[in-house]
């Protein structure tokens, strides 16, 4: 096997391992019990899969055609930059939307904090008349009656 052949083999191997990684993360997304754990599979390992694959493609083009593709590198940077943020945003949204955790969850550290923040904000905004919670509206109605 020549040097070029070896490099191409390595490139293909990288892509294949990326594919294996993707399969693993797909299994993860199927098997994990709730959103919060699934997102681990959905973002972390699939990001790795993409990184490996794109790196493989980059090496392939570099050795095969002598073409150093900036677009592929930019793609790697982009995915590396955005995938964690996307995961973070989804899970934040899920937590605020009160998606249930699995029964095996041991601790929810944010439980008190979020509750407190919400209460504070509601209290503040009701004072300024900005928004009003549904319970408050009911109360006011009763008082008027």
């Amino acid at each position: 096997m020549t040097v070029d052949g070896t490099i191409e083999f390595i490139a293909a191997l990288l892509m294949l391992s990326g594919a294996v990684m993707a399969l693993l993360s797909a299994i993860g997304i199927m098997r994990f019990p709730d959103v919060y754990t699934r997102s681990h599979a959905g973002t972390k390992s699939s990001t790795l899969a993409v990184l490996l694959t794109l790196l493989g493609a980059f090496i392939h083009f570099a050795s095969d055609q002598g073409f150093y593709s900036v677009r592929l590198l930019l793609g790697i940077v982009f995915v590396f930059l955005t995938a964690p943020v996307a995961g973070h945003v989804i899970i934040r949204a899920a937590y605020r939307a009160n998606v249930k955790m699995s029964d095996t969850t041991i601790e929810d550290e944010l439980k008190g904090v979020l509750q407190q923040v919400k209460q504070d904000a509601e209290a503040d905004r009701t004072e300024t008349g900005e928004i009003m919670s549904e319970d408050k509206k009911e109360e006011l109605k009763h008082q008027e009656e």
Binding site: A19, A22, S25, A26, G42, A49, G75, A83
Partner: peptide, 10 residues
């Protein structure tokens, strides 16, 4: 869906 998108890239 996000994962599908990322995998399509590869």
């Amino acid at each position: 869906l996000d994962m599908i998108g990322v995998m399509l890239v590869s």
